[in-house]
Design a protein around this nucleic acid. Structure first.
Lengths: 350, 350
DNA sequence: TACGAAACCGGTAACGGTACCGGAAATTTC
DNA sequence: GAAATTTCCGGTACCGTTACCGGTTTCGTA
């Protein structure tokens, strides 16, 4: 009746064979069994063989929990992502790929872009002793004590995709500035001159980086920056729609739009169509991420593709290296995106 | 020289405080501390308070690994999915939602549609003693020993989305037959009479169920079934494209197509456009899943929407109930999909 | 022959908690 | 005022495995 009462239901689990059972069966000590099982050198081949045989026979399965507890290592990597959209899911798949191969289990948690969730997840992971963390922080996250706790315990961290300077750890990211640059430069090469950018939330690192690329491309091509052409809005189709609608009202309307995500590009596309403008002749459009739907739309939409899978793999690779070495330089891996030209921005023949 | 290099090269694993430390500090026994920490009744309020205070002061964090090891319960749910596409990712989010709230941690693994991966994942999960499994099996999976191992250990299992009769466990699924039925019936109501179905792999449960719905709708409307109108092919845009191309060649070509996934619908759409036919006048089209892109295409494509989030939540809910009760009836929760009518199939005014 | 070094194996103390058992002190009951 | 309860707390045996410290045996070599 007490509410503190912790319920451990008594279920009749079929008892798993342990090294003790094997030892008893062969009249050897558990130490010998333990050593044999991990192929230690100081066990004769005969005993090793017989132990292996009995283990097989009893369907012995090592109790990872006991081992982890004993050696204080779980062989588990905690992965925290804000969500599992196309981009992040693919990155997680990359992490999974190399982690699995290296013998690690991956524990994926979604923070749902919520700081509270992120803290809860990290705390649970810390308690269950993951060996470290690969994280892409939520957009809400402004303080980092929950992450520093890992570092206090000397557990490695790798940040990827959405990174922040406050996390002192190896980073794996896209060259977002370069992405913004090639997108904008491409528009310029196609003859667009009055290029707007839908730049995402103001505080977010990737927003700023992509915008820096945009600015750089304008500058290199001696185009002046019009503040009215720089719109900050949420990563969101609807916001982008309204922002674009607004943009197109002005009499000096932009002749091309670069959106820093594909969802935003779609919002922009809808507004453009509503206005009766056609792409690419009246106006150019390019997105970011290259989500699969883009090539299905009319017109097909240009975009910047990031090597998502590789970013994930790289993050896991660096993480595992970090785990195995004492060295701990803070590196930043920057992967290059590539430009995919489709109908929405292709005004000139090549 | 990087200023962080120095900080990090020192491996000062700050030792975590344990209940032993708290006990020593207060000159009480560890049992008392243990009880106080879980708010057991047989500790006086004063000692309880002082223990809590010291715990706070030492930044005590319970070692979940030790507890799990001791009580043979990890408060972790293993979730295995074939991939993390839109549908499954949303379902996983549903699982996450209720699991987190109930104090469970979720461990998500992707089998990548590979049987070997699935076995590896289940085996790792079994070794690290998850409390049970919520699984959507891979399309490759034909044998189920790896899953039976959970049941031998009396660990609960819930199957969702992709279920198979060989797994004797509670199921949470979409009413796929109903989905197939309302899709087909809708086409018939719109005046289509020669309706083809792209039905997915032959052995897969959801394929067959959706096709059953298709057949039922035809029968109820006294339309005869033409075997040439039933095409089995992979869940895949390209296959669907070629299959549709083939279908449209015949002189008695179908006047509507029901594809059991949206990806297939897109393949079909491309073939239809290539042939110069227009939707919905010349031919009707309806997909399944209601992926977000459908409303962006021209024409917008009708589809069947499943309550993905609810399916995930339901699976987790049932799982947790199962965990807490000895009862073990094999139930099947069937959630209803809904019909979303868009341009591709709307030939009549309502 | 003897002696040191390998080679092989056993005993045991941890790891951090939990759960039971039992017992002393405080409180109630008759 | 003694007996019967409560209330509160300490002691201890685990859980499965590993790491360390020894101790035998075997074997090569002086």
């Amino acid at each position: 009746m007490n509410k503190y009462y912790f319920e451990h239901s008594i279920r009749n689990m079929k008892k798993q064979a342990t090294i003790k059972d094997i030892a008893k069966r062969l009249n050897v000590s558990i130490s010998t069994v333990s050593r044999a099982l991990k192929n230690a050198p100081d066990v004769s081949n005969e005993t090793k063989a017989s132990i292996l045989a009995v283990a097989e026979e009893l369907h012995y399965q090592p109790n990872r929990l006991a081992v982890s507890f004993r050696v204080k290592q779980t062989n588990t990597i905690g992965v925290i992502v804000p969500n599992l959209d196309y981009v992040l899911a693919t990155m997680v798949k990359g992490i999974d790929e190399v982690a699995l191969e290296a013998g690690y289990t991956v524990m994926v948690c979604q923070s749902n872009e919520s700081f509270g969730r992120e803290v809860l997840n990290t705390s649970r992971m810390l308690q269950s002793l993951v060996d470290g963390l690969i994280i892409s922080v939520s957009s809400e996250t402004k303080t980092f004590d929950h992450i520093k706790k890992f570092q206090e315990r000397d557990l490695p961290i790798v940040a990827f995709d959405r990174i922040v300077p406050e996390i002192i750890a190896p980073n794996v990211i896209l060259d977002n500035e370069y992405g913004g640059y090639i997108a904008t430069d491409h528009l310029i090469q196609q003859g667009y001159r009055n290029i707007a950018i839908l730049a995402g939330p103001k505080n977010l690192g990737i927003s700023n980086a992509r915008m820096d690329g945009y600015l750089k491309a304008l500058k290199e091509n001696n185009l002046k920056v019009d503040p009215k052409n720089i719109i900050h809005c949420d990563f969101n189709q609807d916001y982008a729609y309204f922002a674009t609608k607004e943009l197109l009202k002005s009499k000096n309307r932009p002749d091309a739009i670069f959106t820093i995500s594909d969802r935003m590009a779609i919002g922009a596309m809808i507004a453009i169509k509503e206005k009766g403008l056609t792409m690419p002749t009246d106006i150019g459009l390019i997105g970011f991420n290259n989500e699969p739907m883009l090539s299905l739309l009319t017109p097909t939409i240009s975009s910047i593709e990031q090597p998502m899978f590789e970013i994930g793999k790289m993050a896991a690779k660096i993480f595992i290296e970090r785990l195995h070495s004492e060295e701990s330089a803070i590196t930043t891996e920057v992967l290059k995106p590539i430009l995919l030209i489709r109908e929405s921005s292709k005004r000139k023949l090549i």
